[in-house]
Design a protein around this nucleic acid. Structure first.
Lengths: 327, 327
DNA sequence: GGACACTATGACAACGTTGTCTCAGCATGG
DNA sequence: CCATGCTGAGACAACGTTGTCATAGTGTCC
């Protein structure tokens, strides 16, 4: 900036005035300054500006499990849209379902003085965020609640959705329904399992523990589940996949089977409707989730002081014909 | 920081020493300082630190067309991995295939003094980046080249891959092959079209313009293409989808058809192998693309001064049985 | 006992901006 | 001719850090 000032023959303050479109600069002077800026390729340092003005940094942080997972990338996109409309930029990070990494990312974001943080928590302990929140960095949890603190949270109706899935299958005549969930350490997985039990109860199906597995979905864990729950005597005739990852692994494991058992997936996924047979899903609007959370965050950033809110978004069963009893 | 200093009864410089793990601080003093930091919830302001040290900001910028697109989110993930290993964080932005937006994002990143920028360019003019690059912000273009400047670039073999796709179909006996590409303004789309012509030539198929459409893929544009190119007398017996978006729309448009024409998709996509019949694809390793570009960027960030490099990553045809002539 | 080295600490400036204050120059009005 | 007001511009401090230098205190050596 001082280089520009020297070249234009003015003080740095005048350059600052030009850069900030402040009035009270003689047009001719402004022109000289602009020319100097062009010539030198000057670009104002936003970091210094924010420091001096004590203003916000114009960034928000987003922590998800894996930015590469289509579910989270759709979330990311919705958040980005909102951020753009508020003139903010987004720092993203993947926690990899690791609470230490989550913490590291969150605190790093705080060091960078982001204006707020959106987090799909991996861990169950969030006391580390309390000082930051008290210091004025709003935090909104999404998809999963905070472990041990009260904070703004946006969730989907995991329980209700799974109940609906069970009911759908029960109505098709299924009595032996398997549930393949993600690791029970994950809130949504645990909640959906709870919904499964509840759904069984409501439909007069006795809950059979041997038809349930809860593991991080990999080809191996899901393959094993298929071999033990869906084959042999007493095999389940229908299965609920606890999330889109489980569903995809499951479909692959069943690719060469005679026929697929009836299937409902919690989470919609691309091409689910084009498989044969199409996959019935419990769909929820991921964009709406990101949108709602970001909306709440920006309200907080703008000073909204009300008590922490808990929003639960509805889900919707999309029957696609894969719930029927196999011929 | 001065609050901490006051509470601990030391100077701010000593607090700084403690925060930075500098030696020559009496353990007892350090303990007092740490206690004060805890009590006040102090967190060092990274912006101020970077300003003072003139050091890098520890961030890189990534501009893609749409962070929500699985293709780009996989890229994002690979870049993030690399960034993490270099202790950097990633600012992401979606250009929405709009060159003004791309420019805006890139310049905003520069204002934030990112250590480097990775960009999947939407526009064809990148002169605006020259001053920034001269000023020391390395830029690496990926998936598509820069429009009018010489810069580091990482691409995939669009031409070769499409030639291979045509050859594959020709070997199955197809002579009337349609090509459904994205907008010809997009480098990869144009390049793949070039590969299509080249492939036709090499296989002794005369290039038939009426079997080609190049449009931003939407249900409408792809549906129209299906109706005009794949139906009626003179219909194509095989089709090449220019990218994963086209392929998905195409599959949906053909969902209720008697049978699918033979199909090869440039870009692999999830579940392509589970459709009926499975979709043959020209696959390329998106992670490798992100990895290679980020690797190059970090080499530049660390001072590597060699001439701009152009890397072309190989692609691989994955036959899945959907190339055969329909029964 | 004085030169010397070493330890622990602080004062101060500087990073690149911008807010506040000041001031020179000029025009206006009575 | 002087008080007043306005315009355009600069000096300076401050944002929160850290690098440089200075210094007081302590111990060591001959």
């Amino acid at each position: 900036m001082s280089d520009v000032a020297r070249l234009a023959g003015v003080s740095i303050k005048t350059v600052s005035r030009v850069v900030n479109d402040e009035p009270a600069v003689h047009p001719e002077t402004a022109e000289r300054v602009v020319a100097a800026i062009e010539q030198l390729g000057f670009r104002r340092n936003l970091g210094a500006r924010n420091l001096r003005r004590g203003s916000t940094t114009g960034t928000i942080g987003l922590i998800v499990e894996d930015v590469g997972n289509p579910f989270y990338s759709e979330l990311n996109r919705a958040v980005e849209r909102m951020a753009t409309s508020f003139g903010r930029q987004v720092l993203t990070g993947s926690s990899e379902e690791n609470s230490d990494r989550e913490r590291e990312l969150a605190l790093e974001f705080c060091s960078r003085r982001v204006d707020g943080i959106l987090v799909v928590p991996a861990g169950l302990q969030h006391g580390y965020l309390v000082p930051e929140m008290r210091a004025g960095t709003p935090v909104v949890f999404l998809d999963r609640p905070a472990g041990d603190i009260v904070a703004d949270t946006v969730l989907v109706d995991n329980l209700g959705g799974t109940v609906e899935a069970v009911t759908h299958l029960a109505q098709q005549g299924h009595r032996r329904i398997a549930f393949l969930g993600d690791s029970p350490d994950i809130f949504t997985a645990a909640e959906r399992l709870r919904g499964f039990r509840e759904g069984c109860a409501r439909n007069g199906i006795s809950y059979d523990e041997t038809l349930v597995t809860m593991h991080t979905p990999t080809p191996e864990t899901v393959g094993h589940a298929v071999r033990t729950l869906l084959r042999g005597p007493g095999a389940a005739t229908a299965v609920i996949a606890g999330n889109n990852r489980v569903a995809v692994h499951l479909l692959r494991a069943l690719a060469h089977a005679e026929h697929r058992p009836a299937l409902v997936s919690f989470d919609d996924f691309e091409l689910a409707d084009l498989l044969d047979p199409p996959v019935t899903v419990v769909a929820h609007d991921v964009s709406a989730l990101g949108h709602a959370a970001a909306e709440l965050l920006f309200a907080r950033i703008q000073g909204e002081q009300s008590a922490p809110r808990k929003v639960i978004l509805p889900v919707r069963l999309v029957p696609r014909g894969s719930g029927e009893v196999a011929p």
